[in-house]
């Protein structure tokens, strides 16, 4: 479960992000018409991430091949959407995205740690605990980076990345 949420999910997201970098300028321009200020892309990414934090979704991919495929497709799409949208998105859209995903990660992480029972039937209890702690760490690290980026925009890797394009 911890490997699933904390290693595999981010890796698929990064794969999607890298794939999107290979898109030609023409395709980007065309996509941009549908993605003003990165709004659609950020919305897609936040919904995909929130969906894959539902405990039942994590259980179901272990037994259902169709859902397993959707996991790869949707997370890769979310990664690609983030790459295409992060640059054009302003503070408000980014804030909307992070303000959705980070608190959700904290709540889910806290739930996994504090729950008296196993929330997922297909994973062990200590695994649930690890996943929960990891989510909390990710969410807190994300919040800190976001705050730093807010106050010191020059230091933000993503900002630089966006301006390089």
């Amino acid at each position: 479960m911890a490997l699933h949420m904390l290693v595999q999910f981010p890796l698929i997201l990064i794969a999607g992000w890298l794939l999107a970098q290979g898109l030609s300028g023409k395709t980007r321009a065309r996509l941009k018409q549908w993605n003003h200020a990165g709004i659609s892309g950020m919305l897609l990414a936040s919904m995909v991430l929130m969906f894959w934090m539902i405990p039942r979704a994590l259980d179901i991919v272990l037994t259902d091949v169709v859902m397993e495929s959707w996991k790869f497709i949707s997370l890769a799409l979310a990664g690609a959407a983030l790459e295409l949208s992060w640059g054009p998105a302003g503070m408000i859209v980014r804030g909307f995205f992070l303000g959705n995903v980070l608190p959700m990660m904290m709540v889910v992480g806290w739930l996994y740690i504090e729950a008296p029972v196993r929330i997922c039937n297909a994973y062990l209890t200590d695994d649930q605990l690890r996943a929960g702690s990891g989510l909390l760490v990710f969410a807190m690290a994300g919040s800190v980076v976001w705050l730093l980026a807010f106050f010191f925009p020059q230091n933000n890797f993503l900002e630089k990345h966006a301006s390089n394009q």
């Binding site: 539902i54 405990p55 039942r56 997922c120 039937n121």
Partner: peptide
């Protein structure tokens, strides 16, 4: 996207009734 997202969440939670496989 919003409609798809809500639909997917609705489907996996059995119409917003449950969050876990046990339920």
């Amino acid at each position: 996207f919003l409609v798809l997202g809500i639909w997917a969440t609705w489907a996996i939670t059995g119409g917003f009734e449950l969050l876990t496989t046990e339920q």
